[in-house]
Amino acid sequence: MVGFEIRQAVEELVYRSCMMLDDKDWKGFLALCGEEFRYTIAAHSPEIRRDMVWLDHDRKGMDTLFANLPRHNSDHSPITRHATVYTVDADTAGREATAVSALQVFRTQLDGGASELFAVGRMTDTIRLDGAASRLLRRVVRLDTRLIGYGYHVPF
């Protein structure tokens, strides 16, 4: 079990990252990530009985993705991430931590504002620990939900 300060730094980072993405503050999100950051969305298909990767970008790939988003036609309904940090483990030197969080994603229609559950999954973050300067090094979102209608351009 990690100490209170590590836990707090990790939770802050995970929750801030969700808020930045919810707010479409791509710069703010990337500022929370280290240079070696990598974002992966994975899912298991019981239909073909295989693990699948649905998105896999390094830091540069994320830059490009965010830069290109305004040029594409996308669904404009906002999404809201609800993360709950379940476990935090750190190496003995207290330099790196792994946080496992439950993730729920809701989508809210622009017209009328109805919200619906969009996806659920589990998020595993690797974090370089440095107090308030802690950074995300790796995020792997394993989605349980695989039916996401007409999809989305922004990763969650």
Partner: peptide, 21 residues
């Protein structure tokens, strides 16, 4: 191949979302 697929045709890919929309 997975990377190429995801870029255009994955559920978060550039084109599939547009076609479905």
């Amino acid at each position: 191949r997975v990377f190429d697929h995801n870029m255009i045709w994955g559920p978060f890919g550039r084109n599939l979302h547009e076609d479905l929309l």
